[in-house]
C-alpha cells in the first residue's frame, strides 16, 4: 500500500476521467445490431390503409431496400423535431428506402392529429401498448433502427435524428450519394 497508493489513485482518477469524456454516458448499445430484426405484424394507422393495406407485416417488406424504423409518439417532444426531416427524406428517396413509423404508447386520435400536423406520408403502424418498443429494446422515444435488405439490424440511434445522423445511417445501409 505504501508504494502502490499513487497507482490506485491514478487508476481511479483515470477511470472517472474516461467516464466523464464519454459523449453520452447513458447511451446503451443495442443487442439487436447484426441480428435479424424482430418481425411483427401490426395494424396501420388509418391514413395509410389505402396504399398499404389494413395491416403491415415487416417480413413482407424486407428484401428490396433498406428499412428505417422510427419509434415515435405524439406526446414525445423530440419526435416533433425529427418528424419534418423524416418526411422530407421519405418524399425524396421513397423509391430507394422504406421509412416505417411505429407509433407507441399513444392514443389513435392523438397519433392522427400528429400525422396531420406534420403531413406525414410514410406509413406508421399503431402499437398503443408499446410492446414493439420492448421487442426492439428501446429505452425511450424517439429511436430509429436501420435494417438492411437481408432484414438484419445495422444500427440503432436513440434520441432524435438530425440530417448528419440520418445520412450516416443510410450510408451504412449502402445508400450512397443521398
Amino acid at each position: 500500500m505504501r508504494r502502490f497508493w499513487p497507482l490506485l489513485v491514478l487508476a481511479l482518477g483515470g477511470l472517472f476521467w474516461w467516464g466523464l469524456q464519454r459523449p453520452d454516458p447513458n447511451a446503451l448499445p443495442s443487442v439487436l445490431v447484426g441480428k435479424p430484426a424482430p418481425t411483427f405484424e401490426r395494424p396501420l394507422l388509418q391514413p395509410y390503409r389505402a396504399e398499404w393495406g389494413d395491416r403491415l407485416e415487416l417480413g413482407e417488406q424486407v428484401g428490396s431496400r433498406p428499412i428505417l424504423i422510427n419509434f415515435w409518439a405524439s406526446w414525445c417532444l423530440p419526435c416533433r423535431d425529427e418528424a419534418p426531416l423524416l418526411e422530407a427524406y421519405w418524399r425524396r428517396y421513397r423509391d430507394r428506402l422504406l421509412i416505417l413509423g411505429v407509433n407507441v404508447q399513444d392514443t389513435e386520435a392523438k397519433a392522427l392529429e400528429f400525422i396531420r400536423e406534420y403531413g406525414l406520408s410514410f406509413p406508421s403502424v399503431f402499437d398503443p401498448k408499446g410492446t414493439l418498443g420492448v421487442d426492439y429494446g428501446t429505452y425511450g422515444v424517439p429511436e430509429t433502427f436501420v435494417i438492411d435488405a437481408e432484414g438484419k439490424v445495422l444500427q440503432r440511434h436513440a434520441g432524435p435524428v438530425n440530417e448528419a445522423v440520418l445520412r450516416d445511417m443510410l450510408r451504412k445501409a449502402g445508400l450512397e450519394g443521398l
Binding site: A73, W75, Q105, D106, K110, G130
Partner: peptide, 9 residues
C-alpha cells in the same frame, strides 16, 4: 402540449 408521458386510456 407539454407532454412527456403517454396518456392513460
Amino acid at each position: 402540449l407539454a407532454l412527456a408521458q403517454p396518456p392513460q386510456t
